[in-house]
Design a protein around this nucleic acid. Structure first.
Length: 492
RNA sequence: CGGGACGUAGCGCAGCCCGGUAGCGUACUAGCAUGGGGUGCUAGGGGUCGCAAGUUCGAAUCUUGUCGUCCCGACCA
């Protein structure tokens, strides 16, 4: 074993780091808190991006691009938003360097180049976008305005983790403007559905849709909807958010429109986003102690073919058979790689592609050629089986679908087993320490209680599930009356 | 920002306590054998020991400073 990875049981966060680094998704960089996304990891992101982008366009959105820099005076206009992000903003104060006269060969910030107004590097783009929308919206005829952008943002986090929380990350952010509150709320919910569908159907990761409590709300939002996923260590991960912004940003940036009766009103807004954090979620949702397990619908390589041979003659015969097979598989839309690299031996390749999470591996050698079969190994179950050459493409596409379904079901049943009800404080604390996962419990609805619980247990309210059953009960901390349960968990 | 660990070949590490020719594994290069689960043997190439100053005849090793990284916490839409 040349690439050892930690086991989940022995060191979960080391296991996670090992998968990312040794699986070739990303690398540490020269910049504190920032990572390099390597080709294999970026291919995964491109696949996610392509699917989401199509879903956004199918729901009527268009892409655009806004600047990385936000003048401080714009950034501070929506007070809650500005306050919420103030502590984690990188700020540009100068625009020039010069040679340092005191130290040969080094540069210094030229004090003469101080900017008149500082530029905030966007931690999110509401400010720059709404200052722009002001000029684009005059009439109800300009609405709805449905725009998305694919971009990078910077949040100067104290502690970073590969993909889950980096100082710079890639994401998409949708920013829409509507004539009525109802329409904006419908948009917010629609995009939450898009995210949930993406998570479940493509990432094979079950999520709980819900709404955040006021404490956990996006700074400047009226309501924050979210999808929450459960990781294998029992911690929750916020996988996507969709915000109903009310008229907060319209008022802050003075974006008004004339309705049909020629009355002026502020527009109603939404914003929604998912980020490269989803890659972290994907890694933790399905992978095992041998490496990544990727869902076929997003895997950069769906099938890898490994030849097993002695001598050039056998290799040649295999090459011929494989080239037919590759052609057929590609024709069926399968992303296939033939790894005939002479420098690595079969066993090495087997381990390598398992580490990289390739859903299916086809092994083909002289023995198989003689019998007109191949050996197919599933990454998720480690099952190996011989398949006849005839109809192989069909078998492969069936298997890929089967894997997609099967890893979803596995993750779903894990999630179901880890949503537990707690009715007393002792039960709640015990569950958090021993079983972890989501805990469904009554809460008195106050921010103070929520803070207190967080302080005592590090658990936060992940969400109030949509379509939550109404049920009389008493708050686990204060014993006050409550009309529904909410989901608590320790979270990333 | 607090606590901990660390910085020596691409990667993973030993050497440091007790100063004296910079080493191991892996990767890399070449050759032969091998090839159905991370090959074996042989021969090679590669390092201003994070950076700076100090002590010393002599510093990877001792002293001081400094920079950076990771982990745990605090913080975090």
């Amino acid at each position: 074993m040349s690439k050892e990875i930690a086991s989940r049981k022995e060191d979960y966060s080391q296991w996670y780091n090992d998968l990312i680094i040794k699986g070739g998704l990303a690398d540490y960089s020269a910049v504190r808190g920032c990572m390099v996304i390597k080709p294999y990891g970026f291919a995964l992101w491109e696949n996610m991006r392509d699917v989401l982008d199509k879903m956004f366009k199918d729901t009527g959105h268009q892409n655009a691009y806004f600047p990385l820099f936000v003048p401080k005076s714009l950034f501070e206009k929506e007070e809650q938003n500005a306050e919420g992000f103030a502590k984690e903003c990188a700020v540009v104060t100068h625009y020039r360097l010069k040679l340092n006269p005191e130290k040969k060969g080094s540069l210094m910030v030229d004090p003469e180049s101080k900017l008149e107004e500082e530029l905030v590097i966007r931690p999110t783009s509401e400010a720059i976008i709404w200052s722009t929308y002001k000029g684009w919206i005059q009439s109800y005829r300009d609405l709805p305005l449905l725009i998305n952008q694919w971009a990078n943002v910077v949040r100067w986090e104290m502690r970073t983790r590969l993909f889950l929380r980096t100082a710079e990350f890639l994401w998409q952010e949708g920013h829409t403007a509507h004539a009525t509150a109802a329409e904006a709320i419908a948009e917010t919910k629609q995009m939450l559905e898009v995210y949930a569908t993406f998570a479940e159907e493509f990432m094979a990761m079950p999520v709980i849709k819900g709404v955040k409590t006021p404490n956990e709300r996006f700074a400047g939002a009226v309501d924050t909807y979210c999808i929450e996923a459960l990781m294998q260590d029992g911690k929750a991960l916020q996988a996507g958010t969709s915000h109903f912004l009310g008229q907060n940003f319209a008022k802050a940036f003075d974006v008004k429109f004339s309705d049909k009766e020629n009355k002026l009103d502020y527009v109603w807004a939404t914003s929604w986003g998912v980020s490269t954090r989803l890659i972290g979620a994907l890694v933790m949702a399905h992978s095992d102690d041998d490496g990544l397990v990727l869902p076929p619908k997003l895997a950069p390589i769906q099938v890898v073919i490994v030849p097993i041979y002695k001598g050039d003659e056998q290799k040649k015969a295999i090459d011929e058979k494989v080239s037919e097979l590759v052609k057929e598989l590609k024709g069926a839309g399968v992303k296939v790689k033939y790894d005939d690299n002479e420098n690595a031996r079969p066993g090495w390749k087997f381990a390598e592609y398992e580490l990289k999470g390739v859903p299916l591996r086809i092994g083909i050698g002289a023995r198989d050629l003689a019998n007109n079969v191949v050996e197919v190994a599933r990454r998720d179950t480690k099952e190996k089986k011989s398949y006849p050459m005839e109809g192989l493409t069909q078998s492969i596409t069936d298997l890929l679908n089967e894997i997609q379904k099967s890893i979803y079901e596995k993750a779903y049943s894990f999630r179901e087993q880890n949503v537990t009800k707690a009715d007393t404080w002792d039960e709640f604390v015990q569950l958090l320490d021993e079983k972890t996962g989501f805990i469904s419990a009554h809460w008195d609805g106050t921010g103070e209680t929520e803070d207190k619980i967080k302080e005592l247990t590090k658990a936060t309210i992940r969400c109030i599930p949509l379509d939550n059953p109404q049920e009389e009960g008493r708050c686990i901390l204060t014993g006050k009356l409550s009309k529904e349960r909410v989901l608590f968990a320790r979270a990333y």
